[in-house]
Amino acid sequence: MATLIGPGYLFLLLILLFGFLYGFRRWKSLGPAYKLVSYLLFVVFLAQFSAKLIVVLFQHSNHGVFHILIPLQGLLYGLIFSKLITHKSKPSRYPFYLGLSFSLISIGLSIYHSMDGFAFPSANISLLSVFMLSGSFLLYYQLIQKPSEQSLFRQSTFWFATANLVFYAGSFLIFGLYDWMLVQDGHLPTWARKVIYFLNYFLYGSYIISIYLDATNQRQAK
């Protein structure tokens, strides 16, 4: 099994495991947005773990798992953004509605594509990337509009927005060209897999940093 689960994948699972365990451990010190980020890490961990199990135990395609994961992620991201983005000093509900709309569209796309069997949901990921990039730009805008005395690098929102910006900009490029790459080579090139792993490490690593900073800042504020 160790050879079937490569070191890169194992490392990703460990980051996710550490991330949500750390989030749950600091639960009381976390703000509502970062509690949701901890949940998100837990959901992604479960999805990635079960996706690998399906391949290892049943030698079956695991694409279906990602068709379930992506709408769930959209919904959770919508909730997180609605806690982080404020309108007139109150959390805004619009990001949640956008996340919900994205989830419904994503489910619709999956059903539409399922007629030919579950392919990898590259279109759904590209769509999610657009949603996430817009959210990140809004968070940056909000940070610049409402600065605090704290350094930008000590702010959890900055790490959360940067993680999403880097990951989803990369994902948009790779998964936007995913089908084209498959047509060219018949499979995803090794370098593209390595880039995806790197982007994942960056994303979830930065989420852990943001959870740590939020817990520290919330504790100091008390």
């Binding site: 940056y140 940070l143 600065p147 930008l152 910006l165 880097v166 900009a169 990369g170 490029l173 880039v195």
Partner: peptide, 23 residues
């Protein structure tokens, strides 16, 4: 990929500079 990386780095630097100015 390289162009995108440079763009991202430039964008993040711009955010840091704008934030500092606003701060």
């Amino acid at each position: 990929g390289t162009s995108l990386s440079f763009l991202l780095i430039a964008f993040i630097i711009l955010v840091v500079v704008l934030y500092r100015r606003s701060q």
